[in-house]
């Protein structure tokens, strides 16, 4: 056990799996960096340094820098996965899915079904998401709902360093295609993470706070905000349950329904745009299954239906904040006594 950042935890998970299984390879743009250039080798280790050090340890044959050519290398990773490797491909920013989505959702995701259960595609796609970096509309989105929509894909959103290592390890060991969403604002967040390898099963939500008055279901980085709100509201006598579903596909419906049944109130927090996101999905689930257990209408806290803005003044009001979450919680708790 030692203190590791989210970035280090991801790196350690990939490294340990590469040590354990020589079929595991990584590929992506600047994943090592400096390929063919006169200067430093392993110059970047990925654009934000997550894969730093893998190339010196495993060599260029297993740590493959790619050209800026997502269609080719994401499809290549899918083909390699279907033929015996276990590739971990980095789609640098999830916003870039636009240039390669066919290879993910029409190819990798559907092989197994289309081929009558005969294909095994142990593909991992790592991708960065999330706002807060003043990176504007094409480098800040939370597009996990689009991937969650596709049967055949699994989608994981680690919410801290411990989760990151366990979910990444699980993803690499999983025989289905998995997309891991790494929030770029969390890379430096640190906590105690075991040195040994471990996986966290998909489809098992983590109940990070247990309370009586309201259930917050939050995704990815929003889990931290929800925890913060839960802790601060304790002083006001509001006791909150916080559920981190960990994976949006599979989704742990059982834990969501169970905890919402217990509190009778639900606030869903999702950094994605509000149409057809996880907040609407969870709200629909709860309405359909346990409507009569609800003491108050469900409340969603999401980003608005506009592209991610650049100006700090705008981006700061775009991202769901603890203030907005707290207001939502107070509102639902104020109802139905």
């Amino acid at each position: 056990m030692s203190v590791k950042s989210y970035r280090q935890a991801l790196n350690e998970a990939i490294r340990q799996e590469m040590e354990r299984d020589e079929r595991v390879i990584v590929m992506g743009e600047d994943i090592a960096g400096g390929m063919g250039a006169p200067g430093e080798d392993d110059a970047w280790g990925g654009v934000l340094g997550v894969t730093k050090g893998l190339m010196p340890q495993f060599g260029r044959e297993r740590v493959l820098d790619t050209p800026i050519s997502e269609s080719a290398f994401i499809g290549c990773a899918a083909g390699a996965a279907a033929t015996g490797l276990r590739p971990v491909a980095e789609l640098m920013f999830v916003d870039f899915m636009g240039v390669c989505f066919d290879q993910i959702f029409n190819q990798a995701a559907k092989f197994r079904y289309m081929f009558g259960g005969k294909a095994v595609t142990p593909l991992v796609i790592r991708t960065m998401y999330g706002a807060g970096f003043r990176a504007a509309s094409q480098h800040s989105q939370c597009l996990y709902p689009l991937f969650t929509h596709i049967p055949g894909l699994k989608v994981a959103l680690p919410s801290n360093a411990y989760e990151a290592k366990g979910l990444m390890t699980q993803a690499i060991r999983d025989d289905d295609p998995v997309v891991i969403f790494e929030h770029k604002a969390m890379y430096d967040e640190e906590m105690e993470v075991p040195d040994e390898a471990y996986g966290i099963p998909f489809g098992e939500a983590n109940v990070t706070r247990e309370g009586d008055d309201v259930t917050m279901v939050a995704f990815g980085r929003m889990v931290n905000l929800a925890n913060e709100v839960a802790d601060s509201l304790k002083g006001s006598g509001i006791s909150c349950t916080v559920v981190d579903p960990r994976t949006t596909s599979p989704l742990d419906e059982e834990t969501i329904l169970e905890t919402v049944s217990e509190t009778g109130r639900l606030v869903v927090i999702d950094e994605a745009h509000p149409r057809c996101n996880m907040a609407t999905d969870v709200s629909a689930l709860v309405s359909q299954e346990i409507f009569s257990d609800l003491k108050a209408p469900v409340k969603m806290v999401t980003a608005p239906h506009c592209p991610v803005p650049f100006s700090p003044a705008l981006e700061d009001v775009y991202i769901p904040s603890t203030a907005k979450i707290e207001a939502a919680v107070r509102e639902v708790v104020g109802k139905g006594h």
Partner: peptide, 16 residues
């Protein structure tokens, strides 16, 4: 306690 439960879950996830 919650932490005791969580620690045991984390322990059980370790390889081996």
């Amino acid at each position: 306690s919650t932490d005791m439960v969580e620690d045991i879950i984390k322990y059980k996830r370790l390889d081996g």
